[in-house]
Design a protein around this nucleic acid. Structure first.
Lengths: 149, 149
DNA sequence: TGCATGTTAATGCAGTTGCATCTATATGAG
DNA sequence: CTCATATAGATGCAACTGCATTAACATGCA
């Protein structure tokens, strides 16, 4: 039995990612809701609570480039979903805090997001398979064991 | 032991996808090569050989919207990597055929793509894990068993 | 044949992204 | 304190994307 090369992982990963993402974004658009980039940002802000987050912290959490965060934040702020507060202690920076409207929007997105996702993923797996897949995908995220690089 | 919900699959899937994709695109840019969208198109054309492919066939294979293919093809054509041939039998359509330059470019991209991918994926898994992960991801692509929808 | 309907592909426009650069503030050495 | 350097965030411009629409051809039916 052969060792699969990395493309036998990457290829289905990329394709299923694209296909699921397309479904979810279509469902959100259908519902007149903003896309997953907004959701992800709102989620992080909501987790951070009233302490808020600095843009550069979002950058790390969301794996976005600096200007990506800058503009995304701009749009969410214009939509009233977050508030920019001046950062005492660092005059260059700012602190981003979710508004009640932002939190409400996150929930609205969530209902559609969650639903579509469930339909796209669940039917393909038994409980055991799902658990194993989640576990294996987790390994892809964590830093690789030092001896294998 | 609990059944994981679909997000325990989607979340690491989305994150690892983004992170791997970013690595590969960065490596390609670094090497002065075009991105993966160009690669994917060239690959399909090369597979199709001298028969070529119709744009709407690419659309299905690449999971791209119609206008996406139209413009991507435009760019590749301008770069001389494919040729548009008139389609005898359907005056609306055209047949896209890869040029020798296109095939050469595909190989150049491949060396970087393949290399970066290998580094991003391989260290995380044993051979058995890799095989299992590839298998499970495959299930996500194929249509779900009818009785589970 | 003549016309209604469907299919293939292109495109104008507005919104978004990537890249490079820029401003403003912070930090540390002398 | 003063200057060099580093960091936080914004922005101009060109390229790209999504959406809606359009043009050109195909197909089927009266």
């Amino acid at each position: 039995m052969e060792t699969p090369d990395s493309f036998e992982i990457w290829l289905p990963l990329a394709r299923s990612h694209k296909s699921i993402l397309t479904s979810v974004e279509a469902a959100l658009k259908q519902a007149g809701l903003p896309g997953l980039d907004w959701y992800d940002l709102l989620w992080e802000l909501e987790c951070a609570g009233s302490d808020g987050l600095r843009p550069f912290e979002l950058q790390e959490k969301l794996l976005l480039p600096q200007y990506g965060v800058s503009r995304l934040v701009d749009r969410l702020a214009k939509a009233g979903l977050l508030e920019r507060q001046t950062c005492n202690g660092d005059g260059r920076g700012q602190v981003l805090v979710i508004t009640p409207e932002g939190a409400a929007m996150r929930v609205r997105i969530w209902t559609v997001y969650s639903d579509t996702m469930q339909q796209a993923v669940t039917p393909h797996f038994s409980a055991g398979e799902a658990r194993r897949l989640a576990e294996l995908l987790g390994k892809l995220l964590r830093p690789a064991p030092a001896d294998k690089i």
